[in-house]
Design a binder for these strands. Structure first.
Lengths: 206, 206
DNA sequence: CCATTTTCTTGACAGTCGTCAAGAGTTTCT
DNA sequence: AGAAACTCTTGACGACTGTCAAGAAAATGG
């Protein structure tokens, strides 16, 4: 009996979690389109298959929805660049693949990443976002660190900067490229590739 | 006669411009406190000596006010770091002064700079902000470039990265430090100093 | 098949927003 | 001093926001 009710309640929980994820996906699409400042719950609902009232059935309030969205976005981001680490055979190849992956991400997932920067900026003002934002930032920093340390191994040379510094550098390059790319500057992506190509070797001892 | 009316009208224009600047200063204070998303015209007026209606006497609409604020902010930013360039005697001193200046800016003008990042992010979504944001970005890039090229001269070694790359790197370092500093991380500023100290020499040929 | 629970819609609420017009208050000019 | 121009306040408008409650619709239970 208990196992049956457990299975049922778990199924209900799963369904509940499933719909939460579905609604959060709609929310993410809307957010990446309009940005945090101009996204309303009604707009999110309109871009989903449901009415605006249902959002308060699955999320306590707007903050919980946005927070859940940020975490969902994180899950997508985490493992994206690990394939490059896994398949790299030489330092040069890793460097080129990494630069290319950043450029492709900038071009294809640009609107998703501008949302990430938007939310990270909100954390500078709203304390309630900070914990999740810092957690995602940490995850991204580790991802960059895996790239850099693998590059160092393949090069046979030790790293001279900290993980947070390395992350800050590539993040700065990417953010600038994103702004210029979205502004229609045609050489933004190429500049990003060249910047990464130039900087990565400088993080090791010569 | 014409010179009189000219003087009068110019005086009126000056008064007009003066009040615009005064209101924009109030607006900047409010914006840096609340961020773009949560700043309303009534809130701005409440933090000034006037009522909310006067904002539409001096600014056509909210976009014009914000745009004017961004430009006003730029004027404050431009010449801030040029003193470091002027007074630097050695490469090492310039490097230390620059790192220290960034740390002090992060600590003292943090809320102003989070506003800058907030507005730069809005430009990723609202096209109407892009022109001004890119112009300010260009100014900041040139400021960084003056630092780096002076450092290169004092070191007697050529630079190996472009101006935009150099700007992106230090901007990334600063932005990360700002987030961590506002989050109460005590070593954020020291990490910023060390990061700048480490990176600046790497932008030259060894 | 009916009762119960879960899910979703609808409509309303109190509040805030940007904007504007009407008219006071103030300064300036003749 | 009176007329004219400029400056600022007040109050209102329509639209939009997050939130919630009442109840319809659907799924699930015995």
């Amino acid at each position: 009996m208990t196992e049956v009710t457990d299975r049922i309640s778990r199924r209900q929980v799963d369904k509940f979690a499933e719909r939460r994820a579905q609604l959060a996906t709609s929310a993410l699409r809307t957010l990446s389109e309009l940005g945090y400042a101009r996204t309303s719950l009604r707009e999110i609902a309109q871009n989903s298959d449901f009415s605006h009232g249902v959002l308060h059935y699955y999320f306590r309030d707007k903050v919980e929805l946005i927070t859940y969205c940020v975490k969902l976005y994180k899950a997508e981001c985490v493992t994206r660049y690990d394939q490059i680490v896994a398949t790299a055979r030489s330092a040069d190849q890793l460097r080129t693949d990494f630069a290319e992956a950043l450029a492709v991400t900038c071009a294809e997932d640009g609107s998703m990443h501008r949302l990430w920067y938007d939310l990270r900026n909100q954390a500078l003002f709203e304390e309630s976002f900070r914990e999740d934002v810092l957690e995602i930032d940490q995850t991204l920093e580790l991802m960059i660190w895996r790239i850099v340390s693998t590059y160092a191994e393949l090069s046979g040379s030790p790293i001279t900067v900290s993980a947070s510094t390395a992350y800050a550098l590539f993040d700065g390059l990417f953010q600038q490229a994103l702004l210029r790319h979205l502004s229609g500057q045609p050489d933004a992506l190429q500049d990003l590739r060249e910047g990464v190509d130039r900087i990565l070797p400088k993080l090791l001892v010569p």
